[in-house]
């Protein structure tokens, strides 16, 4: 039982990170129908940028801020490249462009922060809490709380703010949205900024536990994308559930089946889901009419 709970804790904290990265995929996909494979690079920028700034003896809040600024600049550049091209290019080409952008961001990160792995201290230290024999890092609690906060915040933004509603409307029907006066250009820029922020939050959360280096983004992209399609690319609660499910399935298959095949089992699950429910476990079937 203790082992099971320990597996669960590991799965949920990993899954929460997958969920945050997956939400970034989801937000951009909904608005632009582009799968942004540079999404994981924001995780890397969030972690490495903060670690890099800390090495210049900046206080933590400033270090985080400088990483966020760097990531937002990257998001804006990505938006500029992708959306400038979007007026002419087919979606497949744009997806390839995002892969190219991720390579470029990795290169830039290597120049800026070197090739080494870096970590940042957790605000709650490195001593675990013991709950009924289960070791829980305080950082894990922070990860879960922040993820819940980010999801609630995102939902609030889309449901209750005028700009969020405009983004939602633009995602549903861009032509209709511009007819009611919504400027799509702004919507796309905001989309990339939000996706970037979600990725960077994930990076800030995971770096105190794990370590990141300039090539860490790729693995996060893969897992985040898997979480997003598992839950249904278009739905916020779906992606969160998909991320948590992926994390827990990975952890439990490592714990009870074989740690050698945990990734294989997780990806098998995704293939089964795609074959039986292409819109994701929690996604709504698309209801477009022409």
């Amino acid at each position: 039982m203790v082992d099971f709970l320990q597996f669960l804790v590991a799965g949920l904290s990993q899954g929460a990170i997958y969920a945050l990265v997956g939400l970034g995929f989801s937000v951009i996909y909904r608005a632009t129908h582009i799968v942004n494979f540079a999404q994981g690079e924001f995780v890397m920028i969030g972690g490495l940028g903060t670690a890099g700034a800390l090495s210049f003896a900046l206080p933590m809040p400033l270090a985080i801020l400088s990483a966020l600024v760097a990531g937002c600049v990257a998001a804006l550049v990505l938006d500029l490249i992708v959306i400038r091209l979007a007026r002419f290019a087919p979606a497949l080409l744009l997806i390839i462009v995002t892969i190219g952008a991720s390579v470029a961001l990795r290169g830039a990160a290597q120049l800026a922060w070197g090739r080494n792995f870096h970590s940042i201290p957790s605000p709650f230290g490195s001593e675990p809490l013991h709950v009924y024999g289960v070791a829980i890092m305080p950082q894990v609690i922070l990860i879960l709380v922040t993820t819940v906060g980010a999801v609630v915040g995102l939902q609030w933004f889309f449901r209750r703010t005028r700009f969020g509603q405009a983004m939602l409307a633009a995602a549903i029907n861009p032509t209709a949205a511009s007819l009611v006066g919504i400027e799509l250009r702004h919507v796309y820029t905001a989309t990339f900024l939000i996706a970037g922020l979600l990725g960077m939050i994930a990076g800030l959360l995971i770096t105190p536990l794990a370590m990141v280096h300039f090539e860490s983004g790729l693995a996060f992209s893969l897992k985040g994308f898997a979480a997003a399609i598992l839950g249904g690319l278009g739905s916020v609660p779906g992606v969160v559930a998909g991320g948590l499910l992926l994390g827990v399935v990975e952890s439990l298959s490592a714990g009870y089946v074989s740690s050698a095949y945990k990734d294989a089992i997780a990806f098998l699950l995704i293939i089964v889901v795609l074959l039986t429910r292409p819109e994701g476990v929690f996604g709504r079937r698309s209801t477009g009419r022409v």
Partner: peptide
């Protein structure tokens, strides 16, 4: 005989098994 993937950021599951 436990293993982890190349991009993994957590191996507590494997270590928990080893503990037992």
């Amino acid at each position: 005989d436990e293993q982890h993937g190349s991009g993994d950021t957590d191996v507590t599951t494997q270590l928990t098994k080893i503990r037992g």
